[in-house]
Design a protein around this nucleic acid. Structure first.
Lengths: 150, 150
DNA sequence: TCTTTTCGGATAATAATTATCCAAAAGGAG
DNA sequence: CTCCTTTTGGATAATTATTATCCGAAAAGA
């Protein structure tokens, strides 16, 4: 758990101004574990900060994410991608160009199910994040696709 | 590989009309493995079907997905969700109500990396899909959240 | 407190996706 | 093959999530 004092010094060390809004968003996010959306946070916080803007929540989340204080759940992909291969397989997503490769590996198909919590799993998928061969090799040409695909 | 004849009988068995557009989208999706978006498919197919509409591609993909002929890559979540827990952990997503639970299990933290293809992995995450305790128990009340969250 | 820089709020803009409406094509019976 | 009924496809408006823009306001440091 990162307390307020640590947060303050972390912002200072990175030269990022710590505003009331940023602290409020971060502390709200720390206090709950239901993975709220920007909208959810906005609805909750506007009670305490009536002048708060939804755009500010979005910008703040980007800032916190860039600092590594929060993480995004699910994919940052803005477009849905489809696949005619419905057999169980996994994916490797290139962070640089957005390319998605199939990963077939039987060792990934049978993973330990979530314990406790009463969750009934039906399926799972593993997403690897990293760099595809082309981008790892330094060919930045592919990066253009990123802006195109989101 | 599902050939045209099988596709035709599958549609018939489910009572879903098989149109030229549906067949075209499905066969194009079968022919490639770059996980195209609706937009990508539209751009490609409009050469052969000049009257094709983007909305039709979207509707067709939904139809094919509902029939289990194609799968969606990445998350179907329409809103980004955030988390103040940045330690390595995984997620269990309820297909009924959209709730996302954290899954901590060290056995999931060290999985075999994708072989070949030259992909350089930096991180990975496992997404379980299924039903949360409340939904599995039959409480449908939560389903309302789904439409709210997307 | 004063100055400079960066941020926050309001709102317009953008991007992806879905809803709407009617002509048109699919499926089945004869 | 033709007719009839039902469901789809095309064009476009609408919706939703997110980002950009512009200017007053707050933060950081001296």
């Amino acid at each position: 758990m990162i307390d307020r004092k640590e947060v303050r010094s972390l912002f200072k060390s990175k030269g990022v101004p710590l505003t009331h809004q940023r602290l409020a968003v971060y502390e709200e996010l720390q206090a709950r574990h239901d993975h709220p959306s920007a909208e959810d946070l906005y609805e909750k916080l506007r009670g305490d900060y009536p002048s708060l803007s939804l755009a500010t929540v979005y910008k703040t989340l980007q800032t916190l994410h860039a600092m590594g204080l929060v993480s995004r759940v699910d994919s940052p992909a803005s477009q849905a991608r489809y696949d005619a291969v419905t057999a169980v397989h996994h994916h490797a997503v290139c962070d640089a160009c957005g390319k998605i490769e199939d990963v077939f590996d039987p060792r990934l198909d049978d993973l330990p199910a979530p314990k406790a919590s009463g969750f009934k799993p039906r399926a799972h998928s593993v997403h690897f994040h990293g760099l595809c061969a082309a981008c790892a090799e330094g060919r930045r040409s592919n990066a253009a696709r990123r802006s195109h695909h989101g």
